[in-house]
């Protein structure tokens, strides 16, 4: 009998490696999950309301109903992710017992703890967490996150925050690789991040886990933009199912993400897509979800 080691960092990060170059789509029911899988999504995020509707409805946003998550797991063959509130380790335990494939400790839901994120190391299931800058990304990795996604501003269909966060994370990584040994300690202090992770990023020029992009992707060209900036895959939330033709939009974003450097393919898939989600200016928002997390 072969000894099997489950839940190791390599196994947790390994699934994120397999999702690279792909699109992870928010879905609220079985029908949407099937549309996503048919379109070529690499995974779905099962949640009761997409971020645009969470914004519209207000109130406390929590983990989804297990019955809804299980229905989606039964309907598709690709990985199924689900969201827990920041710091809500009991929701995460429930999601692990449902055997979701990834837990998103997400700022899109109402935070449960204003000082602590979930200690993610004891879990067998891997976690993805959002980050707006390099320090936040490294703090999440130090807590056990196996994937980082830039936060952007969920539910806005506005790519500007995603670009800001990606540029901040990747720009600081590039600058950090130029730091000498003494400067790495100053970086660790400034980033409020553990020195061993800071040193690892300085040596390798990359995060120790895959870096995906979320929050505001609404068109094939948006996906191409963030992939060219250095994201390794994309999460699309409201952007698919708040567009006028979700099926066509889903297929187009998948193809544009795979061929993100080929403008002729991005142009081809962008033709006649109908209306993208309407979207919102950042200045007009009541809640900045990206500010949740510490």
């Amino acid at each position: 009998m072969t000894d099997r080691n489950t839940g190791s960092s390599r196994v947790k990060r390994g699934l994120a490696e397999m999702l690279k170059g792909g699109v992870i789509m928010d879905v609220v029911d079985v029908e949407q999950a099937k549309i996503a899988e048919d379109a070529g999504a690499v995974a779905v995020m099962a949640l009761e309301r997409v971020p645009a509707d969470i914004r519209r409805d207000g109130g406390v946003a929590r983990m989804s109903d297990p019955a809804m998550i299980e229905a989606i797991q039964a309907a598709v063959t690709i990985p199924v992710m689900a969201k827990a509130r920041i710091g809500h380790f009991a929701e995460a335990q429930v999601l692990e017992s449902l055997q979701v494939d990834y837990i998103d400790e997400s700022e899109v839901l109402t935070p449960a703890d204003e000082a602590h994120h979930i200690d993610k190391w004891p879990f067998t299931v891997p976690f993805v967490c959002g980050a707006t800058n390099l320090g936040e990304a490294l703090r999440r990795i130090s807590e056990g996150a196996a994937m980082i996604r830039s936060k952007g501003e969920a539910g806005t269909g506005n790519i500007v925050e995603a670009v800001r966060h990606l540029r901040s994370i990747l720009g600081d990584i590039r600058r950090l690789t130029q730091a000498d040994a003494a400067e790495r300690y100053a970086w660790a202090k400034q980033l409020q991040a553990p020195i061993d992770l800071v040193a690892e990023v300085a040596d390798t020029g990359a995060l120790p886990v895959p870096l995906f992009c979320a929050g505001g992707i609404a068109t094939p060209a948006d996906a191409s933009l963030v992939m060219q900036l250095g994201a390794e895959a994309v999460f699309v939330g409201s952007g698919i199912f708040k567009s006028s033709d979700p099926d066509a939009m889903a297929r187009a974003v998948v193809e544009a993400t795979a061929h993100f450097r080929d403008a002729s393919i991005v142009a081809k898939v962008s033709r006649g897509l109908g209306e993208a989600m309407r979207g919102a200016e950042i200045q007009g928002l009541d809640t900045r979800m990206a500010e949740r997390g510490w």
Partner: peptide, 27 residues
């Protein structure tokens, strides 16, 4: 199984010198 059942294991490979192969199984 699903991701919680993904695992690493040392796997014996016929004809490959140098001991077991560190195999990573993801879903």
């Amino acid at each position: 199984g699903r991701q919680v059942d993904s695992f690493e294991a040392d796997v014996a490979v016929d004809g490959l010198g140098g001991g077991g192969f560190p195999a990573v199984f993801i879903r």
